[in-house]
Nucleic acid binder design. Structure first.
Lengths: 194, 194, 194, 194
DNA sequence: AATGAATGAGTATTCATTCAT
DNA sequence: TATGAATGAATACTCATTCAT
């Protein structure tokens, strides 16, 4: 009834690749990309060091897979939240709470996001991850808003979340809601019918 | 009785500290914080390796000074640009061009900015740099807009600049201007008098 | 009742061993013994990695077989060339062209030869390959020359081929021919009858 | 009065670079280039591992310096030996004993020589070492023989030394002397005056 | 005040070989 | 019989920092 693997030094471990990717994300959250090494990830994933480069040809390959998974998760959650909203009003509520949750939600996510942006700023491979993420966010917003508005909201969400995370005296949820409203009101000269 | 620089290799070099800081920024732009080392910076600044830890107690101290200088420069330019605007209309023009310039402006700046955010997300010392920067931006915006609006604009600027930098098909300057207008119009039913 | 190759990825592949040996030689030519690994050879031979140690108990066993095949090939060509000569004059022509061909002949051969000598210098197993090769060369030369002369020629051939390969300004074929003549003339005052 | 360095973990050690090069040669002689690693050389030279790449930017740089020193040593010895000869007769004696000494002389030299040739066959940087060596040998031979003869002797010496080293039943010194005589007689139809 | 040399701990990656399937 | 996965030991190399001079 123990959860420990058999004493055999050679394990059959089909989910190993998966576990390594999650361990890599944990490590990035804890110590950043700079603080992430094969050794550290191997330890977290409880796999031998030699296993790392067997499953991932290089550190970059591992980082790519890790950030892809990360972006997918956040993006899916974002989408699910917006899909659950039945009208614009609820959609805005969802956005507000997503922005401000960042604050509460283990700082980890914020940290990992910016690690990804830093890589993306320099490396096109990683940029394709952020681009897919951006596309997904806008698609989700387009369930409730026209494409132009979706893009505006997307930019504002990004900036507001960042500033809230870095600001010792961040804006209130009311402020956020008001700003979002302004950006949506404009989408059509007259109130969008729901 | 002017002091001639000694012929020896030990140079009288009062700007050395300064040059090291700039070299560090160049290195960060080129290879990221992760790719920046004492050796590399010493080479770029053309100073002996031992000089590095003589002038800066640690790598972190050097990074702090480098990012502080960087944020100051960008922030000053931002402020100068807004100060030069004589009315809201010009102020918005200035903002639009600042946001979109990011695209052209040596990608280096974008890259360094995100390196800083990544550090700030994890380390309060670096966070104080970004906070000062944020304060300065808002102060500059408050030359033309009320504090609430300034904060909204600031967030949007941040997000839009990021998305433009990462987006292969970025929004147009008109889009940007329109979004900014929405955020400012609402701040007060009628144009804020200066 | 012919046996069809199974559709599965497990192929019926009787020449596999052979292909691995040739792939090993290609790898040695391209990257040296030091740059040759199971992985690389398996890739070149298009066989699964696990197949390597299935067919060859160890890397050394593979190298032994590879160099044995290599020495055999070169040695056979040498012998064929000398056998085709009908008299001493033709034999010397054959030798001259063999020595100088080395230059043109894919540099690969030269490279592999010296890899083998390096192993032979240290390891008696590989030395037995070079010894057999040396014996075969002398035997071939003895078709036209007495044993003493054959040995002299063999040494000169070896040294001249090496120096020509390494010399940016190598000797001419006439030089080579003249040197060979000196070594043969002396062996016996008058042409050895066959 | 001990030869051991002070217990201080930080040593002042001006001959360290030198010692590392000699240790590298020892390692190459013992285990070949393939068996030579930073670790092993550091151990032999009694320097910390980190010291290795401080003094030599890369393994190749170390190998270059080691083989340069090696070739210089052998080449100088060769030259000294020939310079000491006062006539052709003594010169030939010197050559014969140099060729056959190879056999006795710690096999190490032979082994290191072939390691060098193997590198030279593939890498022009190392080839320049062997070329300088070849030039020096011929220059030394030209003290006693015309350039054409010098080149012939040089090739024969090379090949004979190699075959003697690899041959379980090598030629006698008389054989060697006879072959050398043949090659020198030809240089001029009549005995060269001294 | 300034620095070249030194160094231990760390990095990514490669590898021959083993073994469960 | 054949193999993909696994792994421990090793490799070259980097680095921030220390320290003797």
């Amino acid at each position: 009834m123990t959860k420990h693997p058999p004493v055999s030094s050679r394990r059959y471990d089909p989910q190993r690749r998966d576990r390594i990717i999650d361990a890599a994300l944990d490590s990035i959250a804890a110590d950043g990309v700079a603080g992430t090494s094969h050794r550290k990830v191997a330890l977290l994933a409880d796999v031998p060091l030699g296993s790392m480069t067997y499953h991932f040809a290089s550190m970059d390959e591992l980082l790519m897979e890790a950030f892809t998974r990360f972006a997918g998760r956040i993006s899916d959650a974002f989408e699910a939240r917006l899909d659950a909203a039945t009208d614009r009003h609820e959609a805005l509520d969802a956005i507000v709470s997503l922005i401000h949750e960042d604050l509460q939600r283990s700082r980890a996510e914020h940290v990992v996001t910016y690690e990804l942006y830093t890589l993306a700023a320099r490396n096109p491979d990683f940029r394709s991850i952020t681009q897919a993420w951006m596309r997904a966010s806008r698609r989700a917003l387009q369930r409730h808003f026209d494409p132009i508005t979706a893009r505006r909201l997307d930019a504002y969400i990004e900036g507001a979340a960042l500033h809230i995370a870095l600001d010792p005296d961040p804006q209130t949820t009311e402020d956020t809601r008001a700003a979002l409203l302004l950006l949506t009101n404009a989408a059509s000269p007259r109130p969008t019918p729901q």
